[in-house]
Computed example of a mutant assay.
Amino acid sequence: MSQESIVIREIREADNAQLEQVIKGCFPEFEIPLKGTAYEDAETPKMFESYQGEKEVYYVVVKGDQVLGGAGIKKLKNYEGNVCELQKMYFSPEVRGRGFGKQLIIQCMEAAAAFGYAQCYLESAVQLKAAIHVYEQAGFKQRTEPLGNTGHYSCGVWMEKEL
């Protein structure tokens, strides 16, 4: 890897296509179902536009002009409580295992707390064992059933954290 620095910043419109590739590239690699997951979400191709509302933000990990991953916070869909969701945390192989997941979780939890959320929820796939481990290290606890209705019926791991 070159000496060019890797940074975390808020998403820009120009990041959409590269971020979509990073997200969708993880599904065949980890044998995650395409149906009932972020793979088929309408917002995946237009992540910048999807995180422009109140109390939501999406961060990307970039090296120069190259998008290498990201994660975001948004109000939990179809749920009445003061709960946000940690969404679409995916990374290219180039940056996995280098602490960026942990950094993004911290940054997202700080944003969620600043937005006034009381709790953070996430959904994942059982195949993403390393990610689940990072979530647990960050204080997320597994649930026995989902919250809200995200439409991600193929995600079999549900976790939550008090903020």
Results as ranks from 00 to 15, higher is better:
Q127F: 00
L128Q: 15
L76W: 11
E20F: 02
N149R: 14
E31T: 15
V157S: 02
E110I: 05
H152K: 11
F48Y: 15
E145G: 03
V22Y: 01
N16A: 08
E80F: 02
Q119N: 01
M1D: 00
R12Q: 15
I73N: 03
V7C: 00
E56R: 08
C120R: 01
F27K: 13
K129L: 09
E40M: 07
K141I: 09
W158V: 04
K35F: 02
L122W: 10
M109N: 08
Q66A: 04
Q18E: 15
Q18N: 08
D65Y: 09
V62M: 04
V157W: 05
E40D: 12
L76E: 11
S5C: 03
D41M: 00
C108S: 14
Y39K: 02
E20N: 13
Y39P: 02
L128E: 08
F140H: 03
Q87V: 13
K141F: 01
V95G: 09
I23W: 07
T150I: 10
R96G: 03
L128P: 11
P93D: 08
Y135K: 06
M109V: 04
C26F: 00
E80Q: 11
F30V: 06
F48A: 07
K77G: 01
Q21H: 03
G36P: 03
L147A: 02
Q18G: 09
E13I: 00
L68H: 03
A125W: 12
